[in-house]
Amino acid sequence: MSARTKLSLILLFAPFALWLGVLIIIPHIDMFLVSIREKIGIGQYRIGPANYMAFFTEPLYWNTFMRTALMSIAATLLTFLIGFPVAFYIAKVARGRLKTTLFLMVLLPFWVSELVRTFGWMILLRETGVISHTLQWLGLVHRPVELLYNDGAIMVGLVYTSMLFMVVPLVTTLDSLDDELIEAGYDLGGNGWSVLREIVIPHAMPGIVSGSIVVFMLSLGNYLTPVLMGGKNSLWFTEQIYQQFIVRFNWEQGAAFGFLLLFLSSLIVWLGLKITGQTLRETMG
């Protein structure tokens, strides 16, 4: 490699390296150092695992995390179940303008911020909201109904927020599936179900895996949607971290929770890949 190309390579990677180093690696190192600090007096600290131990000894933390993880897995599954037919329709059934229009319609809600989108749902679901009023007007219910502040509302919010991140990778992988393969599947005696199971799903697997990882991570790390749509009882793990940092000003505990979230979510993704027999390399390749 000549000096010139070496220089341009360095320049090309410099912003990325800076971003990675300054905004991700250095803060994480610092966070880790904070997380292993134990407060033993005013301004006095020692190194120890107490912050991490608190997570396992205090059932509230552990339960909050489990609940967050399970609900994120459920949200991922639900997003997949809703997103797959949508993606299949866009990639394989729709043609020309319709295809572009549908794809744009999936994309469109993401042109406004998550906050606005969540408020939109709140307007629909709250006690004095659109759905409540409509139900009363139709005479189906006789007093206002509160549809917000429950797990169902959180789930609706999470699935809605994540839909794009499932649909886009699925459309991309399904687009690359040759129609001939589907026809061959039928021609050789397969029915809709077996063609889906043996040909379409295996082909779309990289898209399914990458979509699921993104949706799971986004749900697990989501703060706005669970808090706004689940209210005080949302018991979301990110809320716990926020509490530690901002409300209780216990940065040590918050940092430990942050690291636990990182490791436990990575562990769940790893387990998910193992169980479905996928590898990250195949997914990214």
């Binding site: 040759d178 001939e180 393969l181 026809e183 061959a184 599947g185 039928y186 021609d187 050789l188 005696g189 397969g190 029915n191 043996e198 040909i199």
Partner: peptide, 15 residues
Amino acid sequence: NRRPVNMVFQHLALF
């Protein structure tokens, strides 16, 4: 899928 004919596709369509 029920016809007693099978097809060899233009691009073969091997899975």
